[in-house]
């Protein structure tokens, strides 16, 4: 089973929920996949034994000058301007390339080869019952979705997979949620939280993934999120109170369920509720 954790807004507690949920499941092996490849953070809370690292590549073009006839086809078809013919010289610009393959597929002289370009890495560590898979985008790269796809390839379909996604509701966030069985949306009861929750709900709805909401930093104040969930018929899965102790344990990088064991039952309950929903 695949459970994705999403939030329209950053900093609502997505990683808090993902890591503590993973730590509260004991009946099955858990794969926690950190798909927030621009800023992966789950490993801060789950420091285990490193078992594997895999470098992730994408194909980019390399022109075989001996075969090239300077016909300019590649230069004409590349909408990203990543390959261009000037006079008699073909230049390639790796950081503009989207690896679409138009140049090598369409070259009439078979003069373009594919070579590998490193876009990031996937680390695998083990902590108790949890296998943590972390995707980390190489700085200077902006292609998160292909790396997220590779991270998702590490799912263990015999057990529970928790996918901690990036914030927002654009391509990378979508890539993380797509194809999961259930999406847990983490929000906070503020106008920011509600605004971004709306966007995230629209996104998961477009993807056809069922979802429920966890309200983090719950307390007196804004009831907009509750009204919205009621109106949209979205299940409220859990409310985590506004509590200095939670903020402090998070700041230290200690998992909440280790610092405050009472939360283990609460997160296990969340797990049971999700099982009931799927």
């Amino acid at each position: 089973m695949r459970i994705s954790i999403a939030s329209g807004k950053g900093g609502t507690g997505k990683t808090l929920v993902a890591t503590n949920l993973a730590l509260s499941i004991s009946d099955q092996p858990v794969h926690l996949l950190d798909c927030d490849v621009e800023e992966p953070n789950a490993h801060v809370f789950l420091q285990g034994d490193h078992i594997d690292q895999q470098v992730v590549h994408l194909p980019i073009p390399k022109v075989n000058q001996a075969k090239c006839q300077q016909c300019s086809k590649c230069s004409d078809v590349c909408v990203f301007n990543a390959i261009a013919l000037f006079d008699k010289i073909i230049l390639t610009f790796d950081d503009l390339c989207h690896s679409c393959g138009a140049c090598w597929h369409l070259c009439p002289h078979n003069a373009i080869e594919k070579i590998d370009k490193e876009i990031g890495a996937i680390d695998k560590t083990k902590v108790d019952n949890i296998t943590l898979i972390t995707g980390k985008l190489k700085i200077g790269n902006h292609a998160s979705p292909p790396l997220i796809k590779k991270v998702k390839g590490q799912c263990n379909d015999g057990g529970i997979n928790i996918l901690d996604g990036p914030p927002g509701s654009s391509c990378p966030a979508m890539e993380a949620v797509e194809g999961t069985d259930y999406c847990v949306m983490v929000t906070e009861p503020t106008p920011f939280g509600l605004n971004d929750l709306r966007l995230a709900v629209d996104m998961v709805t477009a993807l056809g993934v069922p979802c429920g909401v966890v309200i983090n930093r719950d307390g007196p104040g804004n009831v907009g999120v509750l009204d919205y969930c009621r109106e949209k018929g979205i299940k409220l899965l859990m409310q985590i109170p506004m509590d200095d102790r939670i903020a402090k344990s998070y700041a230290k990088g200690t998992p909440l369920v280790k610092e405050e064991p009472a939360y283990r039952d609460k997160f296990n309950q969340l797990y049971q509720v999700i099982l009931g929903e799927v």
Partner: peptide, 13 residues
């Protein structure tokens, strides 16, 4: 259209 990056390879091919 959510997955399409607009590379035009299919259009040309």
């Amino acid at each position: 259209s959510m997955a399409c990056e607009g590379c035009q390879l299919c259009h040309h091919a």
